[in-house]
Amino acid sequence: MDDLQPGARTLFTLGPVAIADSIVYTWLIMAAFWIGSWAVSRGLRQMPGPVQVVFEGIVGACENAVRELLPRDYLRVTPFVLSLWLYLGVANLLSLIPGFETPTRDLSVTSALAVLVYFSVHWFGIRSQGWRAYLKHYLSPNPILLPFHLLSEITRTVALAVRLFGNMMSMDMIALLLLLIAGLFVPVPILMLHIVEGLVQAYIFGTLALIYIASGIQSQLSEPEQENGSS
């Protein structure tokens, strides 16, 4: 019944640091991406093979999505958004492999990702226009709206973390409960739904992160630039 406990489990400790299973899964995913990326980048050719075509399709689709929103800063933002999509897509589907758990069922993991998105919005905004111009938008159109700006950023960050955690944790719980109650084959449709749900949640999380970053960068643009087609 220990599997029925939501959240992560501590696998071992390194001194005062408790290493949860979600961290280990994350390391596995990182290792897989590292090896895969290294293998792909070694064999890149102008006439691509099937594997290169798949990776070029993924990278190209991500880059185009970012470029549509940030035609000026897409080179800087694309690695971050690409990492979110790829990591969350693989992490959300990891529980389909027997013996593995999805790291995003851990609120600490989704919170870490949401906080990274929160700071990335400020990071890219400040790098794009500087401190003054970026912080100025908190006082526009009226300084009275400053608390609402801050509250909005906190709530959307929390929403990011809780949405992903809640969906993935609930899907895992439902699949596990159905497996325990109904038998081996009944959860299969639920697992198929799990695939869709995992990919959709990854897409939503990355898209929201991209939108937040784009809004943070575009909010720094001057009014003439906005009028000249910064939409």
């Binding site: 290493i19 990182m30 990326s37 690695p79 690409l82 609120l107 906080v115 990274l116």
Partner: peptide
């Protein structure tokens, strides 16, 4: 909420961003 997991996940993801940016993107 485990702060060590939170902290390690932040570090892990930043490393992952570097890996994917350096070796894939």
């Amino acid at each position: 909420f485990n702060p060590w997991t939170f902290l390690l996940e932040v570090i892990n993801f930043l490393i992952l961003v570097w890996i994917l940016g350096r070796f894939l993107y």
